[in-house]
């Protein structure tokens, strides 16, 4: 009998601090699997965000740095420029990448930095207790939109991936989801493509991952996955954007 599924080398054998059913653990593992498969663990430098994944460096088994909230792509830009032979990726949530760090995101993308951005979209601020994110859906209740997001006051969910897709220097943008095993495997393929692009010096690549936050969506883990499938993908359709 053969072991056909086990923990990748790039993922430390520790228990994470994430809530039950949280998508971060999944996304961490997929990245670790891709890094193992591409045999780049010893070349990778990761930039962790501020948000729930702030201590991602405790879980990944390769070089990591933190970045101030929203600045991951500025930090990543510099690391890649001074160490072009290393593989640099950022891991950022919706608040980090599409609210406080929008400027850094757009400009790193627009410069065509040869780095990989992994963007976790769970439509909420988990770390601080479930406030509205730039990607919170219309009508979605959060700590700061107690009656639901209202377009008159909070505007529309920000489709940052679509926006980035319009930039000529951006080479690859795909939106994927973690809501079932098939989609998880597709997510992994997209992540692998984004890393392969960097290895091949193709340019800026971003993978947006729709990811569950059962705790602040106030749902069971299973229900959260269905909510992504039935509701979130309506606003954020799964597709290769560029």
């Amino acid at each position: 009998m053969k072991k056909i599924f086990s923990r990748p080398e790039s993922l430390k054998n520790v228990t994470t601090h994430y809530c039950a059913g949280c998508g971060h653990g999944l996304a961490h593992r997929l990245i670790a699997e891709v890094i193992d498969e591409l045999n780049i663990r010893e070349k990778v430098i990761a930039v962790a965000p501020v948000g729930c994944a702030v201590v991602a460096y405790d879980y990944w088994n390769f070089d990591c740095t933190e970045a101030a909230h929203g600045r991951a792509l500025a930090v990543g830009t510099a690391i890649k420029r001074v160490r072009p032979d290393n593989i640099v990726f950022t891991y950022q949530g919706d608040g980090d990448l599409a609210a406080i760090g929008t400027n850094e995101t757009i400009h790193a993308a627009n410069r065509g930095e040869n780095i990989t951005a992994i963007f976790i979209n769970n439509a909420i601020y988990g770390m601080t207790g479930g406030q509205m994110a730039p990607t919170t859906l219309l009508g979605q209740k959060t700590a700061t939109t107690p009656k639901g997001r209202d377009v008159r006051f909070q505007g529309y969910p920000l489709n940052i991936s679509l926006l980035l897709g319009t930039l000529p220097a951006v080479k690859y943008v795909e939106r994927v989801s973690l809501h079932n095993p098939q989609e998880i495997l597709k997510s992994k393929r997209a992540i692998k493509q984004a890393f392969q692009n960097q290895i091949d010096n193709i340019g800026f690549s971003l993978v947006e991952i729709l990811s569950p936050c059962p705790t602040y969506w106030e749902m069971s883990s299973e229900k959260a996955m269905s909510w992504i499938r039935d509701t979130m993908t309506k606003e954020f359709p799964l597709r290769r954007i560029k």
Partner: peptide, 8 residues
């Protein structure tokens, strides 16, 4: 999400 299953 927590990588606690191994498959044989």
């Amino acid at each position: 999400p927590d990588c606690c299953i191994e498959v044989y």
